[in-house]
Write a protein that binds this DNA or RNA. Structure first.
Length: 205
DNA sequence: ACATTAATTGTGT
DNA sequence: ACACAATTAATGT
């Protein structure tokens, strides 16, 4: 299991005891907007992508969660005392999470320093990722954002060839298919990538 | 092997 | 952004 060796023995035992192990498949929705948070999810295996939507129902990808991480927004839900989810989480790959009951969360924060550190560290790394997102949305043009997206996607999937359609990319970046197609074409002409049907190969990124 | 169709990608306005 | 053309993959005959 993923979290072995990180926490002290007692905590590991408690995790064993109180966490429920849940498997998920690619494409499964882990949490939807407005859903009540009853658990803290620890990502045991696989990749989860996290979205935020605006009032018009447009949605953008915020970041990928990788194994060993937890979602900062669920933590925020705790502190604010508002247990409704501001985000949506969808499985990028198959994997599994450990669901930690909320009361245990608070319990462990007080009891275990390793847990506290883990939560704070994960909080911090999320904040930095969010800053990147803000930067790329506010100050960069779409082609840089697209490149970042492709790199990120390649990283979490540990593969330089991505199976994805232009439409899907457009949805995640909240752009349109046509625009993405044109940008991809440009990248291909610059020999940065190769595109095929349902396929993008990162050659020189 | 060929025709049909749906999905994906390309391009001009 | 929209409309339409072109290409590709999948399926049936």
């Amino acid at each position: 299991m993923m979290f072995q060796g990180i926490f002290e023995e007692d905590l590991e035992k408690e995790i064993e005891q109180f966490a429920t192990h849940v498997e998920f498949d690619k494409g499964d929705e882990i949490i939807g907007y407005g859903e009540h948070m009853q658990f803290i999810p620890l990502l045991n295996e696989g990749v989860i992508k996290v979205f935020k939507e605006n009032k018009d129902g447009d949605e953008i990808l915020l970041y990928f969660l990788e194994q060993g991480e937890t979602c900062a927004f669920t933590l925020q839900c705790l502190q604010v005392g508002d247990f409704k989810s501001e985000i949506r989480a969808v499985a990028e790959t198959n994997g599994s999470i450990l669901k930690i009951p909320l009361h245990k969360m608070e319990d462990w924060m007080a009891k275990y320093t390793t847990w506290r550190q883990f939560i704070l560290a994960s909080y911090q790394s999320r904040i930095y990722e969010m800053l990147d997102v803000i930067d790329s949305i506010a100050f960069q043009n779409l082609d840089t954002r697209l490149i970042n997206y492709l790199k990120d996607k390649a990283m979490v999937n540990r593969s330089m060839t991505l199976e994805i359609t232009h439409q899907e990319i457009a949805d995640e970046l909240n752009s349109s298919r046509v625009v993405i197609s044109r940008l991809l074409k440009k990248l291909e002409n610059d020999h940065k990538i190769k595109v095929g049907r349902n396929l993008i190969e990162l050659t020189e990124l």
